[in-house]
Design a protein around this nucleic acid. Structure first.
Lengths: 193, 193
DNA sequence: TGTACATCAGTGAACGCGCGTTCACTGATGTAC
DNA sequence: TGTACATCAGTGAACGCGCGTTCACTGATGTAC
């Protein structure tokens, strides 16, 4: 990895974090470059324009997302893996760390307004996310894994987003806990009560 | 209602629609006033500044939301009312009409970045939405209506948002259909299959 | 080993533009007499 | 009924500012001989 490649990666890391935290319009070229320890003029040595950056930053976010999924789902205990994914995704720590967390919950309602290249990457990332959950459910023996995955991802993303919209940490935590319990129960990961 | 009040209402209607469609940063004072058939200078006769408008526009959106909820839930058939709410909320027509639809799905992931007055109104609107669902579930005899409402609203909002992030109308429609079925089944509104 | 030179990542001043906001002004409306 | 005047919603030019983008330049690095 050359010096230039490392610099580009650093800019992308910062962009991927800043955009999850401040939205796609919330971070400018100048402040982004400053975060990466550079001046704004150098930006165009790495990206053709801002839209190019946004698209690459979306991909970068979904790399985090993919390794998070792999960490939980690619283990011997399929049932425990899915349960630990749900527990992590709907945890207070994930709720608090928007900048490092799931791009779908961080940017979901902005997806349709992203510049078109970025929007395509977002949609591809969402599909990969749903496919990973679907695969896990198929491995657990579900006969309709795609349908279950679609519904499961909707509740995961929705619950995290709503918890983040709620300022009171206790209330937000309860919302996450409710969805955690319902989801695991519904997917047969804990006993019904 | 005076002439001035009607003008203010017209500006707010336009703002509430434009912000759901383009995000809170996606509509400027000048273009908003143009949409309302006025020039930008007159804006400050109606609002103290842009933040004031954003907060009032959020309230305006949740008025639409409240009347949508009432239309479905305030009818004699409680079970049928909740089912028709779910069918409408997760319909293709709601998916297509962001500007007139649920503000939670339209702005959810931006909520934490709204100016503070607007953020408070958003959170209050979200609470009212959840309370309305909870009340409906209590009327249907659920022993844990708040927990069920929290999980139900999460999936409704999440599914609509993800369907809107999906450009292919058929795929988007399927996502809505999956959540519609799961939700109604889970809440005992249709027979399990 | 030491000098000369090409490369190129990064710098920083400058650009045009659209933003939110201000403010002196206009002109339609309605009241006073 | 007709004239004089006060009110005030709305106009449009102007402001300072931060944005994305361009580009002539700098200066560290590594190769050639």
């Amino acid at each position: 990895m050359t010096h230039k490649e490392r610099t580009r990666a650093r800019i992308l890391d910062e962009a991927a974090q800043a955009m999850r935290e401040h939205g796609h319009a919330g971070i400018g070229v100048a402040s982004l470059m400053k975060r990466a320890g550079l001046t704004h003029g150098g930006f165009y040595a790495h990206f053709s324009d801002r839209n190019d950056l946004v698209a690459a930053a979306i991909d970068r976010m979904f790399e985090d997302s993919a390794s998070m999924l792999a960490r939980h789902l690619e283990q011997d205990d399929a049932r425990g893996g899915l349960a630990s994914l749900i527990d992590y995704y709907l945890s207070d720590s994930h709720r608090e760390r928007v900048a490092k967390g799931c791009p779908i919950a961080a940017l979901g309602s902005e997806a349709g307004r992203l510049p078109s290249a970025a929007r395509e990457r977002f949609e591809a990332g969402l599909e990969r996310f749903q496919a990973a959950i679907s695969k896990a459910l198929r491995n657990l023996g579900f006969s309709d894994p795609d349908e279950q995955a679609s519904s499961t991802v909707a509740e995961m993303v929705g619950a995290l987003m709503l918890a983040r919209a709620t300022r009171d940490a206790r209330t937000a935590g309860l919302m996450l806990a409710h969805s955690r319990e319902r989801l695991k129960q519904r997917l047969g990961l804990i006993a019904a009560h």
